[in-house]
Structures are given as C-alpha cells and as structure tokens.
Design a binder for these strands. Structure first.
Length: 889
RNA sequence: AGGCACGUAGCUCAGGGGGAGAGCGCUACCUUGACGCGGUAGAAGUCUGGGGUUCAAAUCCCCACGUGCCUACCA
C-alpha cells in the first residue's frame, strides 16, 4: 500500500478542525454509564457561561485533556463532564452595563424582564467558550454539558438548601457582613480582597459629660463615629481604669455612650481607647454583642449616610468623612491626623471598598461540614497535589467562619423560602406553598434573595451527574478521579465541594486534587486587561497551532509554581511539531516500497541491526518515563522526555543512521527490518504524544501504511514498553559508536575541516570487545562522521602527521598535512590542560584517607576508574604532543 | 503580623548529597537525498551571601539579604 507523501511543512489550519469534527461525530468523547470497564472521571471547573477563553482556561483544560486522553487510550471508561457556571454577580454586572448604555437600570426594567434579558445574553454568548475549548482540542463529553442554572442542577440546589435548613445547618440572622455598595449585595468573606491602602489615623476627642476631661480615640474611619455606642479600653490599662463605667458624649449627635472594658483593646495602639461601632465593624460587632450594646447603622446600602447621621444624612460615606474632618478641625474635636497605611477590603468583582454592614442574611454553619472535609484529607482519602497546598487547605478549613450565602442580586438561584406575614413563620420548601402551615394564612411573601454562585458550584461533582436522583452515572463515576484547578479557587470551590460532597454523597468528590499555578507573562506579571498584557489563547492557536500551545503549557507546568508564558517558547514547540511532521514525512517516503506482509511475522530482536535495537530500547525508556510522569502529574517532565526522545534520539540519531540501511546497503532483508522499525517506532511516538498534541498526531497516524486496529489514534492503545528490546549490550555498543562519531565530529570542528570534506581516520584500541564492536559498526561511523577511508586495529602505527583524540579505550587519528601540526600541538595542549583540570578533583579525592575509608565502595571504585581513564588519555595526548614537538624542531 | 514558596548560563526555568542541565538567545561553519520551523561544532554559571552537618553540599540544617504569593479583626 502506498502512503501519501506529506507536504513540506505542517499547517495546523488544515488539520485541526477536520479531526475535531471527526472525533466528535464518531462519539469518541462519550462516556458509557452502562460499561463495566474501569472508570476515570473529571468534572471541568465550569467557566463563566458568558466568558471567553483566557490563557488560564487554556492551561487548565489542556492538563485535563492530557489526562483524559491518556486514560482513554489506557482503556478506561472515561468521563470528562463539561459545563458552565452562571457566575451571578459577574454576569449580572455585564448585563447591567449593557442596560446602562441604553440609559436604563435594572430596577426600571423589573426583576422578571431583567432575568429574561440575562438569559437572552446567555443564549447569545453562552456558546463562545465551549467552541473555544473545542479549538483547544478538549475531548469533553459534550452531550452531557451542564449549566449551573439548568433545571436538574437547580433542583439539586433546592434539595441541598432544604436539607441543610432542616438540619439547622442553614440559618437566617441579623449579622454583620461584607456589603458592596456598588453591587448592592452581601459578599462572603472570600469575595473580599484585602489591599494595602495608604490611609489616615484620626484622633478624636470625646468629652465626659459635665466635665473638662475627655478621652481620645483613634480611628481610620471618622464617619462611623456617628454610630458609636461605646468606647472600649483594656481593663489592665492603668490610664483608664478609673473611667470605666463612666459616660462620654459623642460629638455631633450628643449621644451619651459608656466607657467599657474589653481585653481585645491593645494598650499600645493609638491612645488605647477604641471607639465601638457595632453596625459597621466586625470586631466592634462582636464586642457589642458581649456587652449588649445598641447597634446603630449610619450607612445605607448605597454607601450613603442615613437618617441616623444627623446633619450628614444623604452624603456619600467618603464625602462625609472629608466634611466631618473639616468640621472636627473647626470644633476642636480633631486632635491630630497621622498617615497610616492599612488594609482595606474591596469587592472582588467591582473593586469598590466594601462596607461592613449589619443586615439580615442567610448563613451556612460551616464548622461541622469542615470537620469531615479536613479528616478526608488527613486520612488521605483525597490527596492534594502538590502537598504544599494541604497546609493552606487545613489552615483555612480550621479557621472557617459561617458562610453568608444570600445575595441581593437577581441572577441566580432564588432561595426557596417564604415568609408568613401574619404569624412570621418562615417556610422553606421546594414547591411554592399555598398557605402557611402554622397559621393557615395565604399571605405569604417569597424570599427575593438568590444564593451565592459558589453554593451551586459546590455541588458540581454530583449535581452534574443527576443528583438527587440516584443515577447510573453517579454510581459509575462518583467520586471523580481528579480535580484539576488553580490555587486561586482552592477555598472558593474545592473546599466547598469537599464539604458538600461528603455531606450529600457521603463520599469525597475526588481522589486527587491537582493544583496548578497561574499563567503569567514573560515578566512574571499577572495578565490583566488594565495592564494591557493579555494574550489571547485563540490568537496563539491561530499563529502556532493548538498542539504547540498545548505542548507549551504542559512543558511549563511545574507543580506548585506559576508559569511564565513566552511566545518564543510556543514558537519553539511549533518548530517541534514541524520536526515531527518532517520526520514522519521522511518515514513515509521510505515506507512506500515496504512490504507490509512482513508485519505478520515477529522477528527475534537480534535479527534487527544495532540502531534498530537501540531506538527500540530508548523508546521503552521514554514510554516508561512518560507513563510515570503522567501518573504523578508531572506534565513538564513528560513533555521534556518526549521532546528529548523525539528530537535528539529519534531524529538526530536514528533517522540519520537508518539512511545508511535504507539507501546505501543492498541488503533487502535488513532494509525491511529497518522500515519496520521506522514504522513501529513512529507509530509508538505518535501514540505517546497524542495526549499532548492530538491534532498533528492524528493527521500523521492516519497516513501510516498498513491495517490499523482502530480508526483513530484517539482510541488506539497507549504504548507499553516491550521488554524484549531492553538490552544493556545494545545500549553500550551504541553508546560507543555515538561517542566515536562525536569525537570525530568534534575533531573536525576543532581542526576546521569543512563539514563536507571527507576525511581519513585510524582507530586504535587494545580492547578486543571494543575492536569487535567498532568493526561491526564501521559503516555507521563512516556514514555519520563522513569518513571515506577507515582503518582499525590494535597495532596500527600513528601516522606521521595526524591529529589525535581519545575516547573510551579508543585512540583516534586523523592524518593532516605537516603544515597543520603546529595547530594540532596547540589543540593538544588545550586538551591536556582540560584533562588536568578535571582530574585534579579526582586525584584530590583519592588522596583523601577519609574518602577512601568512609565513602561507599562503589563510589570509590567509580572515582578510581575515572582517574585511570584520565591518566591513559593524558598519556596518549602527551605522547602525541611530544612527537609533534620533536618533529617541528 | 503570621504562613508558604522561590533566588542555578543573557532570558525562562528543570535538577537536587558524589565531576553543573534544558529550551530560547548568542558565535562559527554547512543549500549532506524529512525538516533552514534544519544540521554540526562552540562560547557562556564563585548554583544570592555567611555559618554548620558530612569523607563529600548547588543539593540537608541555621542565619542574613532579595523576590513573589496566601491568610489576618490591631482601631
């Protein structure tokens, strides 16, 4: 069968789309819940439904696809569950911005209309990221694609909410929470980003009632003083002991507030007096509770001062601060202002400074859930890889606080609760209740809040598989094999899936969590739109091919560290793809006349020639390494092994050596065996590389001659090492040949013999085995070192005028004109110097008594051998140098 | 403030108790029958600094300096 000759260079554009469609149409991506095969499953970290693919997605999904394709080829029944997330606040913000352009806000539109609009936007842009994942080559089971707001997933959310509520693990309470005045919603602790901000520390004077005395409090937020309900001092603080229990008068509002004692107050800080604003500060809130203080809100949901702010009512909280500072200066309340850098919380979606605010919210009691989640990792039921992240996980889980899950936005899962107006009963139920079960009234009002997006994401590993229904899919594929994700959502998502999975499935959601780093630019900066350094993965795919991008990401992925992407690297791997392409082109050209019937026979390994046997042994090694690396999630090692083997062993050595057999030798039998090796090794290389570079490997594989057991490389088997080709002798024999060829090339370079000019060489060795090996492989040496005249023997005379080098037990002579002997003398001197430098270290070791007595014997032996080698090598060089010098005299 | 990483060739980074590695870049030569997206050869590093453990330290331990990240309620 004749195979098609490939084009001269690889063009991804003509290949990628074609094969993706082929795979998808044939259903290779599909998992089979009815199969009895061993399973392997991954749920995709769902990207924002209206988002576009960024480089972080490209990394995350490339790694998953490598694992998935590897396991699929290994014969597993593989499920890669895809889907998207509704991303509540983020998506709502986008649609609100669109409305703004039309001069509208969502309140003018109304809840229903607004949600309709979001769904419409989801419909328009929702497919984008999925089609982009396909461009990357992601082999997800697209038929099962889920969306967090699907009916089934929404049902799971309700079910979980209700069960947690019934168990008392969800409660509703007035509590201080993080509030974003721009998004107008509560945020969880995690959704607040802490940033160092240069602020001021204001010292304010609070006078005692009917007295000249006063206390001075220090605050970064003077505007909150309007809501102060106490001043706290440390009970140990001598300065204030006498005033505890007395009352001070709050300036502006002239409200009397007590001086209380609380050991939380740091005596050293500021004045040692702490103003307490329970409604606008987390600590003050806690202190307020223990002292039964009143909670006075002075800032409203939009971040403006409210009716409790007296003259400042209606002002923005920051404008109010400025105004108050001016007023305080005037009235003598302000003692001084110090510069004070401190940390301020910002909304992770819109970067607005969050306002700690007292409000009525829904919470999940997380402690009991966290306990089992901690244990699961402690016991190793779930492994976190790399393990450094375990500590971070434990730390967070152990200090977890209750999770505020209600959001005052519209886009999301409505909390399934109703309130009875007449009797105040709260009804939590899946179905809309018709009347109050307690008082029978039908005056029920529904809860308007929606749930935190992460509440539904936390259910992802089982909600996507049909829970709460007991599906076959869950039975087969839960727990999943591994979760691949970035550390940035370890708490947001991974921790919550652990808690929810253990609670509702009674089992961990995944056996392994593989955590990769962030993709940064060449300078190590985070990619960001404001910085203007974003790279579009689709642009990279377009320019270099999806395979090159995938390989780059895999090669740069080091467990536990961020990766710096550079375009030159991707370009380099495009060259690698091209190299593979051309190696295949060479192979196919030389397989045209190959008699495929030969493939039916299984020749004994010894029938093959040295390079054939050698490359098969090296292939075994590469297979073992790639397998091991993949099992350990060491993507960079696997990539490196592949690159090294394919380029520097298969192409640089094997293909070059094969040319001799293919073109120069007349032996048809030998030629057939080499053709066979060429075909088999190339086939294995393609399969080995397929998880990393799916497109190019399929394109070439399809053109390999001969019958194939499968119609696609995707479903062919991942290579296994074939032990009959592991042969130490072959490896060392080839090693000798490679060394000799390198030495000759080296000499050629140093003596400035043009690469094209054939040379004469004489090899002398006293070692019988070595001589035998050299004689056997003489033609390979001649071919690759471009030697036209070749002599070999143990008793050869060194030609009168020649350059000399030595490798292993072989002396290599290359005759030269007499005029070049001066040059040669210099070269020898240089080489001797090099050897002296190297052997100095060895002799030093051997003259050390301690080393000889304490180091392991095999190490000592090794060093001794090296010393001997250096000695003989040096002798030979020296001898040659002396002779040349004599003659030159 | 605490915790965790990291500091190796010009750049990006592997490695990790027994003579310093890769890719890119750089230099010289080469249209050798797949590939110039190529080939051959080469230059290049007190492995941040200082102590310690050891026969032996770039590697393990301590300290310092530098860089990055995460967590945190000092107003």
């Amino acid at each position: 069968m004749a195979s098609k000759v490939l084009d001269k260079s690889y063009d991804p554009h003509q290949v990628e789309g074609k094969w993706y469609t082929f795979w998808e149409e044939r259903g290779y991506f599909r998992a089979d819940e009815n199969s009895e095969q061993k399973t392997y499953s991954i749920v995709i970290p769902p990207p924002n439904v209206t988002g576009v693919l960024h480089i972080g997605h490209a990394l995350n999904n490339t790694l998953q696809d490598i694992l998935i394709r590897f396991k699929r080829m290994e014969g597993y029944n593989v499920l890669w569950m895809p889907g998207t997330d509704h991303a509540g606040i983020a998506t709502q913000n986008v649609v609100e911005k669109q409305l703004l352009e039309e001069g509208l806000d969502r309140h003018q539109l109304g809840r229903e209309k607004f949600i309709e609009k979001v769904w419409k936007w989801k419909g328009q842009s929702g497919g984008t990221i999925i089609s982009q994942l396909k461009k990357l080559g992601a082999s997800c089971d697209w038929g099962r694609e889920r969306f967090t707001m699907d009916e089934g997933l929404s049902d799971a959310v309700k079910e979980v909410f209700i069960r947690l509520y019934q168990e008392g693990l969800i409660y509703r309470s007035h509590y201080i929470i993080n509030w974003c005045p721009r998004c107008q919603t509560a945020l969880s602790d995690l959704e607040v980003e802490h940033q160092e901000t240069s602020g001021k520390l204001y010292h304010l004077k609070y006078p005692f009632r009917k007295s000249d005395r006063f206390v001075v409090v220090a605050t970064t937020r003077p505007e909150t003083m309007l809501g102060d309900t106490a001043v706290a001092v440390n009970p140990e603080d001598e300065r204030y002991r006498s005033v505890i229990g007395e009352k001070v008068v709050l300036p502006v509002v002239n409200r009397e507030i007590p001086v209380i004692a609380n050991s939380y107050v740091d005596i050293e800080f500021g004045t040692g007096c702490l103003k307490i604003t329970p409604a606008h500060d987390f600590n003050d809130f806690e202190i307020g509770l223990t002292h039964g203080l009143e909670q006075i809100k002075v800032i409203d949901e939009a971040g403006r001062m409210n009716e409790n702010a007296g003259p400042y009512q209606g002002m923005d909280r920051f404008a109010c601060r400025d105004q108050m500072v001016e007023d305080f200066k005037r009235d003598g309340v302000l003692i001084k202002i110090d510069d004070y850098p401190h940390v301020v919380g910002h909304c992770y979606r819109c970067k607005t400074i969050v306002e700690p605010n007292l409000s009525l919210q829904w919470f999940v009691k997380t402690k009991p859930l966290a306990k089992t989640a901690i244990e699961a990792v402690q016991k190793g039921r779930t492994r976190i890889i790399p393990p450094v992240w375990e500590k971070t996980y434990f730390e967070w889980m152990e200090n977890i606080r209750d999770w505020c899950i209600s959001r005052q936005i519209w886009w999301g899962h409505r909390i399934p609760a109703w309130y009875c107006k007449p009797c105040g009963e709260v009804i939590v139920s899946k179905e809309t209740p018709v009347s109050c079960p307690k008082c029978g009234s039908d005056g029920l009002t529904p809860e308007t809040d929606v749930l935190d997006t992460w509440f539904s994401s936390g259910l992802w590993p089982f909600s996507t598989m049909g829970w709460p229904k007991k599906t076959k899919l869950l039975k087969r594929f839960y727990p999943t094999s591994v979760l691949v994700t970035g550390f940035d959502i370890l708490f947001f998502w991974v921790a919550r899936m652990m808690m929810m999975g253990l609670k509702f499935m009674g089992d961990i959601p995944f056996r392994d969590v593989y955590i990769h780093g962030l993709v940064r630019d060449e300078r190590g900066e985070k990619y960001s739109k404001t910085r203007g350094n974003v790279v579009d993965p689709l642009d990279l795919i377009d320019r270099f091919g999806a395979d090159a991008l995938r390989f780059t990401l895999a090669a740069l992925t080091m467990p536990g560290s961020d990766l710096k992407l550079s375009e030159s690297r991707t370009e380099g791997y495009r060259h690698f793809a091209n190299k593979i392409w051309n190696a295949s082109r060479f192979a196919l050209m030389n397989l045209e006349a190959f008699d495929l019937d030969e493939m039916n026979q299984r020749p004994h390994p010894e029938k093959f020639n040295l390079p054939d046997r050698w490359i098969r042994g090296r292939l075994n090694q590469a297979i073992r390494e790639v397998r091991k690396s993949l099992e350990e999630y060491k993507f960079n090692e696997a990539s490196h092994t592949l690159y090294q083997f394919i380029w520097h062993e298969f192409c640089d050595w094997y293909l070059e050596l094969s040319k001799l057999t293919l073109y120069k030798e007349g032996d048809q039998k030998r030629k057939g065996l080499t053709q066979r090796t060429l075909l088999e090794v190339l086939d294995a290389i393609l399969r080995l590389l397929h998880p990393f570079m799916p497109f190019i490997t399929e394109e070439i594989w399809q053109q390999l001659p001969g019958r194939k057991e499968n119609e696609s490389i995707m479903i062919s088997t991942f290579p296994k090492a074939e032990e009959q080709y592991d042969d130490e002798n072959v490896a060392s024999e080839m090693g000798l040949i490679i060394d000799v060829i390198n030495a000759l090339r080296n000499l050629r370079g140093e003596m400035n013999l043009p690469p094209g000019e054939p040379m004469t060489t004489l090899l002398r060795t006293r070692n019988e085995e070595t001589e035998k090996r050299l004689r056997k492989n003489q033609s390979f040496i001649q071919f690759l070192a471009l030697v036209n005249e070749f002599q070999l023997g143990w008793d050869l005379e060194k030609p009168l005028h020649s350059a000399l080098t030595a490798v292993r037990e072989v002396e290599i002579f290359v005759p030269m004109e007499r005029s070049r002997m001066e040059e040669e003398a210099k070269r020898l001197q240089k080489e001797i110097l090099k050897i002296d430098k190297e052997s100095a270290f060895v002799t030093k070791k051997l003259s050390n008594e301690q080393f000889l007595s304490k180091a392991p014997p095999e190490i000592v032996e090794e060093v001794k051998q090296k010393a001997a080698e250096f000695r003989t090598q040096r002798e030979k060089l020296e001898e040659s140098l002396l002779k040349i010098k004599e003659r030159l005299r």
